[in-house]
Structure formats: structure tokens, C-alpha cells
Design a protein around this nucleic acid. Structure first.
Lengths: 196, 196, 196, 196
DNA sequence: CATGAATGAGCGTTCATTCAT
DNA sequence: GATGAATGAACGCTCATTCAT
């Protein structure tokens, strides 16, 4: 018989790759990078260990891929062009987007949060210049926003970062601990605090 | 030479144990749990690998011991008698104590923060009934405090927990990123926000 | 289009087989057997990995085939009829043929030389009765040649074998280390030494 | 009980290291580097795989050690000081020493011969400057010797190298194929050819 | 109490080989 | 005839843990 067409092969690859990424993401989120073995990922994906290396060069490159996917999703969270200023409206949307994303992309956030605490992997995260640039720019824009609208901008920005980070941690680590209504009113409070 | 007395033996044991814990804590904080080997700990402590197993059952139990020590220290941070209420003064002290502790016990916090994301390790905290009780009681008392002094107590308590957690994370992971004056004025702001 | 005839199919097979052998030979010679993967051979030949197994049972059998091809070429180097004696002229031609062959069939010699040290592979040469016979006969004829023309035939034959083997090794492993003129005069010296 | 004394530990290490080297040498000589696994070495030595890494950093470093040992043994073969000239007497001893060494250190020679044919491992062999220097110096001295005593020094030196190399190969690969008397008379012939 | 040689299970990774298409 | 996704055994290597001394 004839071999599969190139399109068929591509489709197989696309699906299998997604399957591997999903399995790895879930395990990385649940147990962390070092405690998750390639064996375990393969088992979860229902494939052989060897096949993973048909799709990814190494365990590390699999992680990098997951992180990059997440970054490319998230860079659009703050809907601002490269050199544009952040408006109050954008800030509101940004807050909402983060809170929403914490639910819809829970596993990604778990992985990212975990790794921001691990020096070796954090370095890996910043190994790409583009990633560093994206984050530096975002920081700069947020900085400008607070400088423009608040009396004590540094203090306020630290408050902003702290409360967002802390809330994220709480929501990630104890999901369901707070009722939706509370989350909702908290979100409104954040708007009152930081949207100008 | 006369043989050592039982007390001397005990003293030696206590000191060796402390030495091992210190070495492990420093390495866990610096490089993480998985990237720190028993060999490395022994080297840092200037003893043999085997001796560590004379004091601890396993690498994990060494970690657990470190975390439990820290928890028992921290639960006394808020020095309130069993059924006493938290006063505004106590709350102020609590905030200060936490911020101070983040500096003086940085390594402990680093280890704890990293492992709070690991479900199995997180459960270790609650393995002792007494720890569970202490934490539950603390939670209850803080809850009462906010109920008594704030219009939206749940919202306020979530704000309290978020900002403390987030600030802790920032201070731990990016030490030196914020100047002392800013930290100081931020602390005062926390007092204004949460001390009644 | 009309379906291919049986002859056409055979021709395709023959060409593909030759393509695979050529690719493998080049890689085996360049990087060695163990460091050359089937993947690499397929890539060099511009075909799929699977197709190689349509022509050869295994990587090893591909190697064996290469070696056997070469042996069957080489046993005809000394073109002496079955029971004929080796003449001085033939010996001269033999020496020249070997030296020429080291250049024209360099890759074959490289592979053969490397594997002559591997006992299991070395035995492959002798797996075919006909090969064993040919070699035995050749040995016998050379033996006769030296017995007839030299005072110390065994010593002389060992000298012959040694110098040819050693020169081959040097030329194969350090190509270009000796200028052509030197090689040429060395060849003449070999003639003076061994041609009677 | 008290632990072993440092001397006891050193003795254990020395013996175990020798055991590992012996086992590895034998297998490398018999089957080659790539076809010999750490597992196999451990099995032959009657120890666990892990223990090998208590003594050697890697499989490669084990090989390097073997090669270096051999070099340090052999650099004294040609009994000449750094800048001294090679005398006829020394050349005679050199020839004898090589032929003797081929028997007494057969496995070393097998390993070395094998690896001179394998580019990746040959490079490893020359990775140490001292090794390169030693060999370069030897080559230089032999070169001088032939220039001084022979009419066609390059041709003669190529003859010398070829016959020694070829004889070595023959003796290594087909031990016992030639009777001792023949080897002995061949040795005398080498003396007549190259000792001046 | 103290040592470090020794173990062995498990890791990430490679690659010859198979087989559905 | 031809493809390449998929397998699985084996590799080199690490390291928590054990134990004779």
C-alpha cells in the first residue's frame, strides 16, 4: 500500500505533540519538573518513552516549549502595542485577564509559578532574549502607568504586584477555597484600587 | 580519659543534628531540594554521608524536620493565648514580625515557599495534630479580628493574605530589588490598612 | 502508463541497493560503524529508514554485505588460475594492485581494516566456503612463490605481509603524510625486494 | 566500631581501581570501546555499575586512564633522554622492547591499535598536550637517526614504520600463527636492517 | 559515634527495528 | 516499493541508602 500522505503525517505529528505537551503540562503542574519523569509523561500520554524524543529534543526542551507557548498566549493579555501607553481601561482589562487566565490556564500558571522559584529553571525561562525583552517592556509600561496616575507610584506598584502575585498563589494553591462572589467583589476592589 | 557522660553524648548529638540541619537548610534554600544531594550536605557539614542517616531517616525526613521546626517557630509569631482575641496592637506586631522574619529567616522562607507548591510536602505541615490545631486556631482568630473591625471582612482578609503572600514572594525571590525606604513606607501602609 | 516489467523492477532494486551500500560505505568509512546510525544512512541516501530494511535484514547484514563485496573484488586482484603458479610478473602486479586499490577503494579498506580487529566480524569473511577456499588457495600459492625463490621463505613471507599491512595502515590512517614521489620509490623498492 | 583507617580505605581504593582497569582493558581489547558497556565491565569485575563511577568520572575517562597508563609505561621503551640522540644500540633495544611489549602488554596494544583507527577516540588520545609532545619528540628523534645513518632516510623510515606496524598487527590479531623461532630470526633481521 | 565503599533502582536518552498505511 | 510514527531494550550515569568496619 502507499504510505500516508504528507498531510496525514503532519496531522499525526500535530496531535501527538499536543498530547505530549498536555500530559507533561499536567504533570509538571502537579508534581514539578524534577519529580516528573519522562517515563511518567509517556505513561500518562499512553505512548512509549522513545516517542517523546521523536517530538522533543530533551525533557528540558519540552519544558521550554510549554513555557514559550504560555508566554506567547499571555503577551497579548495586556492589549497594548509595543510603544503605546497603558490606559486605565487597559489596566482594568489586564486585571480581569489575569484573574480569568488563572482559572482557564491553571496548569500553565502552576508551572510558571513553580519555576519562578527555582533558580535553574528560571534561568532557562529567561534564556531567550525575546522573552527578556517582552517582560522588560511590560514592566516599563506598568511603571509608566503608575508614575502618571499615582502620588506614590513605587509604593503603589509594589502594592499592585504584591496583591496580584499573592492572590494568584492563593487561587492556584487552594482552588475553591473562596466563593465566586468573593472573588468577584475582590476583583472590583482591585479595579477601584488600581484603575485610573 | 573518662568516658563521656550521657549528658555529653546528648549535647554532641544535639550539636551534630543542628549542624546537619543548618547545612541542609542553606543548600536547600540556595539550590533547591532536588538539586541538593546528601553528599553535598555531608560535605558542607564536614561529616560523612553515613552519619546523616544516624540522625535522620531519609533526605525527605530531613526536609520535613526543617519545615516543622520553622512552622513551630512561626506559629508563635502571633503570640496570642489560646482563646484570646487579636488586638490591633497584636496585628501590627504580626505584620512586623512576618516582614522581619522574611529577612532573618530568609532561608527557611525560601524552602517553605518552594515546597508550599508541592502537594505531598504541603500535607506534611498538617501531619501533626497540634500543628493543624494551631493553624486552625490562628485562622479563626484572624477571621474574628477582621469580622470585628472591617465592613467586608472576607474581602479584607483575602486582601491581607494576598498582599502579605505576594510581598513575601517578591522580597524572597528578588532581594534588593526594592530600596529599604520603600519597604519601610510599605510596611507603614500595611499598618494603616490592617491595624485597627 | 504501462506497469513496469519485471526487469524494470529488478533494475530499480539493484540501483536502490547500490545507493544504500554506497551511502553506508561512505559513512562507515568516515565515522565508523557504531557511530553511524541507520537514520543517517537513510538521510544520506535520500530515502526512508524503513526502506533500508526492505533491502537488508539488519544494520549488521548491510556491513557484512559491504565487506563481502570487497573481499570478492579483492580475491581477484591476484588473477591467477586455480592451480597456476604465481610468477614474478604476477607478484609485481599484485603489489601494484594493492597499492592502487588503497587509493581507489580507500573507503572499503578503511572499513575492512577497522573490522579486522573485531573477532566476530572477522569471522564473517570466512562464513562462505568459497571465500575460505579462495583465501586458502591464495595463501598456498604465495607460500609456494616464496619457497621457490627465497632462501628463508617463511621469514621473507612474514616480511612481505608485515610491510604491506603496515604500509596500508599508514596510508589509510594518515593520508597525505607522505609525498607521492616517496610512495613511488617505496613501491619500486617493494618490487626489488619481493619480485623474482 | 571504629571506621577503617585511612590506609585501609586507600588500599581498598587502589585494589578496586586496578580491578576495574583490568576488567575494562580486557573487554576493550576483546570487543572494542563502543561494544563494551559499563554494565559488562562491572559484571566482569564482579561489582555494581554504580561503583565504577566511584572511581572514574565516566566511561571515557576510564579509557583515557588506560591509555595514559600505557603511554607512561611505553615512553621509557626508547631509553633516550629528552634531547639525546638515538644510538644504534638504543634502536636495537627499541625494536626488542616493542616486540617484547607486544606479548607482555598484548591487551594494551590491542586497545591502542583499535583506537588509532577510530577518529573519535584517537582525538581523545591526543587531547593531552603532554601526549602530543612525547610522540612528536619520539618521531623527531627517530627521524634524526635515519637521516644520519641511511642513504634514503625517508624511504628507510617508512620501511621501518611499515614493517613494525604490520608485524604488530599480525602478531596481535593472529597470536601463535608464527613459531617463536621464526619471530626470533625475524627480530634479528630487523636488527640487521635498521641498527647502525 | 563515624566512615566511605558499595549497591541498585531509576533517570534521560539513543537507536535498530517494526508495521500500519 | 515506500513512508515515518512508534516501540522497547539497552545505554551511560546519578544518588539516596546500606553496612562492614
Amino acid at each position: 500500500m502507499s504510505p500516508r500522505t504528507k498531510e496525514q503525517y503532519k496531522a499525526i505529528r500535530r496531535e501527538k505533540e499536543a498530547l505530549i505537551i498536555d500530559s507533561a503540562l499536567e504533570l509538571f503542574a502537579e508534581k514539578g519538573y524534577h519529580t516528573t519523569s519522562i517515563s511518567h509523561i509517556a505513561q500518562k500520554a499512553g505512548i512509549s518513552k522513545g516517542l517523546i524524543y521523536n517530538y522533543f529534543d530533551s525533557k528540558e526542551s519540552l519544558l521550554v516549549r510549554i513555557l514559550q507557548d504560555f508566554i506567547s498566549i499571555n503577551t497579548s493579555l495586556l492589549n497594548v502595542g509595543s510603544r503605546q501607553e497603558i490606559t486605565g481601561e487597559n489596566m482594568g482589562k489586564y486585571i480581569d485577564a489575569i484573574l480569568d487566565s488563572l482559572e482557564t490556564r491553571r496548569n500553565y500558571w502552576l508551572v510558571l509559578t513553580r519555576f519562578s522559584m527555582q533558580k535553574d529553571i528560571a534561568n532557562l525561562f529567561f534564556s531567550h532574549q525575546s522573552t527578556r525583552d517582552t517582560i522588560a517592556q511590560l514592566f516599563h509600561q506598568v511603571n509608566n502607568y503608575f508614575s502618571k496616575h499615582f502620588e506614590h507610584p513605587h509604593e503603589e506598584m509594589l502594592m499592585f504586584r504584591s496583591v496580584i502575585k499573592g492572590l494568584a498563589l492563593i487561587l492556584l494553591l487552594t482552588p475553591g477555597a473562596y466563593p465566586p462572589e468573593l472573588i468577584h467583589s475582590f476583583r472590583e476592589r482591585l479595579h477601584r484600587m488600581f484603575v485610573r
